[in-house]
Nucleic acid binder design. Sequence first.
DNA 1: GTGTGGGCATAATGCCGACAA
DNA 2: TTGTCGGCATTATGCCCACAC
Lengths: 649, 649
Amino acid sequence: MITFMDSKEKPQDTERCLDSQLWHACAGSMIQMPPVNSKVYYFPQGHAEHAADVVEFRDRRIPAWVPCRVVTVKFMADVDTDEVYARIRLVPVTGSGEFGSFEDEDSGLNRSSDGQVGSVKPTSFAKTLTQSDANNGGGFSVPRYCAETIFPRLDYSADPPVQTILAKDVHGETWKFRHIYRGTPRRHLLTTGWSTFVNHKKLVAGDSIVFLRAENGDLCVGIRRAKRGIGGGQETTSGWNPGGGNCVVPYGGYSSFIRNSNSGGAGGNSMEKVKVEPGLVVQAVKHATSGQAFEVVFYPRASTPEFCVKASLVKNAMQIRWSPGMRFKMPFETEDSSRISWFMGTISSVQVADPIRWPDSPWRLLQVTWDEPDLLQNVKRVNPWLVELVSTMPAIHMSPFSPPRKKCRPSQHPDYPMESQIPIPALCGPHVHLFGGPTTGPFGYQLPENLNVHHPASMQGARHTRYGLSLSDIQLNSGFYPNPMKHSHSSPSVNKPAQSEPVSCLLSIGNATTSSKEPETPKASRFVLFGQPILTEQQISQTGSVSGLGRESDLNLETGHCKVFMESEDVGRTLDLSLLDSYEELCGKLANMFKTENSIMLNRVQYWDATGTLKRIGDEPFGEFTKTARRLTILTDSTGDNNVPAVDS
Amino acid sequence: MITFMDSKEKPQDTERCLDSQLWHACAGSMIQMPPVNSKVYYFPQGHAEHAADVVEFRDRRIPAWVPCRVVTVKFMADVDTDEVYARIRLVPVTGSGEFGSFEDEDSGLNRSSDGQVGSVKPTSFAKTLTQSDANNGGGFSVPRYCAETIFPRLDYSADPPVQTILAKDVHGETWKFRHIYRGTPRRHLLTTGWSTFVNHKKLVAGDSIVFLRAENGDLCVGIRRAKRGIGGGQETTSGWNPGGGNCVVPYGGYSSFIRNSNSGGAGGNSMEKVKVEPGLVVQAVKHATSGQAFEVVFYPRASTPEFCVKASLVKNAMQIRWSPGMRFKMPFETEDSSRISWFMGTISSVQVADPIRWPDSPWRLLQVTWDEPDLLQNVKRVNPWLVELVSTMPAIHMSPFSPPRKKCRPSQHPDYPMESQIPIPALCGPHVHLFGGPTTGPFGYQLPENLNVHHPASMQGARHTRYGLSLSDIQLNSGFYPNPMKHSHSSPSVNKPAQSEPVSCLLSIGNATTSSKEPETPKASRFVLFGQPILTEQQISQTGSVSGLGRESDLNLETGHCKVFMESEDVGRTLDLSLLDSYEELCGKLANMFKTENSIMLNRVQYWDATGTLKRIGDEPFGEFTKTARRLTILTDSTGDNNVPAVDS
DNA sequence: GTGTGGGCATAATGCCGACAA
DNA sequence: TTGTCGGCATTATGCCCACAC
């Protein structure tokens, strides 16, 4: 037996489960584990992608999905690397009678897997280690926000204020740090104990540390290792796509340690554990198809999507009649995995990914093109339940930047000229639903026929790729993305699609008010993006919610508002734009900062209408520039005009 | 596909092969790799034992052996641990026509796998690290022999004599050490660079370091990690023995780092790489049986016997008509893996190990009992080609200590009273030779019927164990073995079997002459073992060769000589017996020394006949006491009387 | 607000002969 | 011959402030 744990308990499986909140803090905000007892669809295809190597199934008839009930979810962490993973025990839900009820149950509920309904996000804070933090200098510069909201209260009356803080890691081991508030200007530091921690965990600059205050008050500490570059890294081909094999996706491996994990058995290493063994996948599928309970291991930081997906999510997604041309957005973790970015895209075709083995599978059903193709060039196929349609929202897709006619005529899309009206290959033929016939299957979708489908050049040869959940997985070596509008911000209308309306935005940068002090009045100098091609239609996300700060409704959005999208799990380095007044200056500044930074927070983003009047909405939002895209995701409602009442901050 | 490398080249398999001499120095003197192009038998059973976990074969019909030709042998080393392993590429030799020639070829040749015929053993030296060597003190005490024969010549005219030595490790990485000759009294030391090496390689006291002077003059350095104790370690059951499962053999794992390697995929770690993945075994067998070339990985320091065995060896072994009662000796590596010890045993039964799956397999065909059962209690079944018969040598087995009648009536053996004349189970039934019928199979052996077989108590329940090649694998925690003859060396004849003749031996200990200086005249005081039960029949090995010093014929052995068996790869700590003159004193001395030593060299062993006259044979042989057995293996020819001409040293 | 570098106190490392086994 | 110990020189660590950005 190939180390597969079946229903018999293995006595030595005494690994400890860790606090689910710490686990989630380490896993990242993208990860939502299915609750115990909830219904999920288990996708063998996705499980196979999650494996360390290509999985070869012996059986020819493997269902594309297996409806299951979650028996247990164990939150685990790798003993060596602290890498978090989950052990999910599933029991297949069999019988056609149960099937309908299976689909209907549990939709809409939003419990997390620790059983809490709508529990408050615990106070956690992540920081990417700087050179100084990771150096042998031995100190850690604690961002004020972290020290004041996560760490135990410090008695500032002492001189200097010092305390010893204890933090439990994922294994329950306690680490002791000296927390001191000193220096001019005053700042929070961890000194004694820090370098021991860094050495023991083998942290380097770029890795992230997560501090979390658990509900019982305990301070916890987790780590998220940076995804090192792809140079010399492993190449992974899909195997399950008959036409595939030479389309390579860099995934987050620790390439500096990578060596061959071929037949030697000497391959693989302790730093490279974000994959499961192929044999386990085969075994899991065997059990799943024979109705036996089984266990899967899921590494949330592996660059493959979850393969145990909440049933309601899948069901809802498959009730949509997906068709090419549809506009959607999809969340990704930012490269430094501290925040989430939404990317806009268009469905180019709807076809099963592997029509030979899984002709009825919704897995990676959607072939997409991105508004920012450079960044997501390796993400070609996505799961329907991971995207959020935006084009079908009536009030939204009528924005002046995306006239409705474009939805129906995607071939006019400026990025995709009328070159490729290729008929859909025959692969998209009849569906075989293994669990009941086509009418009783859980998914009501039908593959479209005779559609105008975009076939980007890269689709030739039916190549297939994995896709990642994190930007750093997708394009690790992307530099500062060549700016298509470097030329002439003095002639803003040049090279602009006719239907793109000018958009202006003021980024007024001041002091963040996460500090307990009263914020200073921002030096509200203006940086005008007006007319810059960066705000072409493709670069403007058109809807979204402002996470962490409140809901749309709280922000008193009005017609014509532009707002900078933001997601703030922690606070990165701030770029003060107050002294800038040209786009070139901004670019130079950013390029310089991005030598050391992965992302930059634009604090106190403010909104500006076309008249140039300052308007501020909400309380201390953060804008975000990502290194790779130099992208400013703009959320806007879409009635067309930018004339909004001037509101000063 | 489960990471199995088939005939297609994997482009990223760019792992470097290392110098075969360094590889062999690290692998230990027991390991003899089959030469390229030679014929071997591949034993799936043995390969399965070599796996990290129990291997479950899907096929019901797996041949017990597959004749193969060695295509390539790559000498590799683990990137993390420096553990050496070999990648052996085999191509099955199929076709019954070829079969006869396969058997007949290549027997008798003794080429090593690097293609050299009878190449001189390269100068290498192994030392087990002391506490001081491994401590952070930062220095390494270089044994004089090593410094003078392995290291580059040191200029003694300088004061102090210093040089920088460069040593390449198994990966070709060069390490720099400062070699100095200083202190009072003068000694060789490695200082600067040593602690870096120790830290980087994570060496601890008990690990061994191997220095080797390659043929091109380069100095090389390898490591052999100590087999840490069994406490908390993994238990491994055989799986392939239907009745087995609860007989546990400690094998050399780094138990202090061990964790579960169950379904999580998070198990296993970089320090625990002396096993191959079960899936690879399955794949290898699949290829082997379908006639395709395949590759196996062999870890010489794993505690399982080689499963690619030189064809001539197997063939020769299987031409012997094995039967219970036969006496044999078998080599094992000493606990500190610096030398080889031969152990004596008796075949208790001849029966296939797994009659269900491999009814015709010679693998572990011999069930044995040992003269020193305490030490080898877990070694119950051995491969015929690994033992050397001693009872069939006519002049030998007639020794006064082993009268010939005992061979035929082993039940009279003092250790095995007439308790267990159990008939052989039906398992030993007809053989199925998959490769040709019973008459065309490569092995002419027949399983014996109706024999008087010893069934030691431990055999009840048909338990099965692995066996190890190294003493430390077999009984890691054995202390100083209780001495059966502690009582009365003043009454030498007490408790002695009637047929045991007194044997005397003088151990005359002086200065070893590995130094370049002229050896001092040994203080040849005498230690008389005469009449001690330590020399009962079971404790006397009866034949053998003196490795490293010359062959039997070179030693001018004469009738009645006793000689102390020895094998010296390096020089351990010396016990000066010159001041001892009682057995008790020796025992006390040994017990004391064994608190820190694993084995003790008895330098300048000399031979003594029954008259008490000194006789010295050969040039500076070394005697050996092993910690666990307090055993003095005595080789003797066996015409019965000990009256030999007195020859002084 | 926080990253980085230099100064400096302190701790760890590692080289040494002295002993002893 | 070589393992271990205490002494002591040298190096490394890590805490601190000053000064950016």
